[in-house]
Write a protein that binds this DNA or RNA. Structure first.
Lengths: 143, 143
DNA sequence: TAAAAAAGTTAGGCTATCCTAATATTCGGA
DNA sequence: TCCGAATATTAGGATAGCCTAACTTTTTTA
């Protein structure tokens, strides 16, 4: 298992690698607002867990399992931020910061249901079927 | 500010005091599944922050500000557990454990919106107005 | 190409939170 | 009432995560 903090590091590396192909200590530190020293400490642990690869003083890449884990965290983050903002109408900034924290704590099942709820509310097909009961049916149909 | 951990202690004391009028170290330890020693350490901090009163070897009571804070945490917990279970259809156990963690991380505004969303979905009055747009109107009317 | 700048690392320290083991206090029953 | 059981506390230690300061390596540039 990896802690919430380590998930944050993985997620940051994942996001950076989307555009840069490799990540560097400085970028991770900037994104997470911690010092380089803290990043180095976290990277050592991630390396020991086989989630990243890095040569001394070199670039940082996710391993297969690191990438899978990071992608999961990132997906949870996106889903939550989107739900908070586009369903609940929370401002983007707060939606992001809430997602940042809740992505580590909410069960995958819970987040999955939030995604369904958004779909349900976006459904124009059957606007007459509002309400909890029809949301339950909606869940049942897709799971 | 109090940490997530201290909020858990406050909440436990609050719940215990609902039925017993005072709390004891042993009960708090049992509820949070930590040792007595950990409870004692946390109580010292809560005392320093003026959130509880306790004589040496004696009973534990919340102060006014402690009770207010504990009530807030407890309310967030209830609202989340209820939303997860009764709206999302998550099993009670998981709904509780998710609530336990998210109660410390989600902004009050976010939790407030979840409560509104439940009300909205429970509204029988206007079942034709399903969908995100009418939820937004719904929010607007009550805030 | 050598010195300066930038980036990465290490060493050591701090705080929060938990633990176990030992000790102190309180309380209930013989 | 006094002794043992129950409860509370203290002492000391571990871990995680962050920091600053000093140092090393790499990169840039004059």
């Amino acid at each position: 298992m990896v802690s919430a903090s380590l998930e944050d590091y993985l997620e940051a590396i994942y996001e950076i690698c989307k555009t840069s192909s490799v990540a560097r200590v400085k970028e991770i530190a900037a994104r997470l607002e911690v010092t380089n020293a803290s990043v180095v400490g976290a990277l050592r642990v991630l390396r020991e867990k086989g989630l990243i690869e890095q040569e001394r003083y070199g670039y940082i890449r996710l391993t297969k399992s690191g990438r899978e884990l990071a992608r999961d965290v990132s997906n949870r983050h996106q889903a939550l931020a989107d739900f908070f903002n586009s369903v609940l109408g929370i401002g983007k900034g707060k939606a992001e910061s809430d997602a940042c924290k809740a992505e580590h704590t909410l069960a995958a099942e819970t987040i999955g249901r939030l995604i369904l709820l958004k779909e349900f509310l976006g459904t124009k097909a059957s606007p007459k079927q509002a309400g909890l009961d029809s949301f339950r049916k909606f869940i049942h149909e897709r799971e």
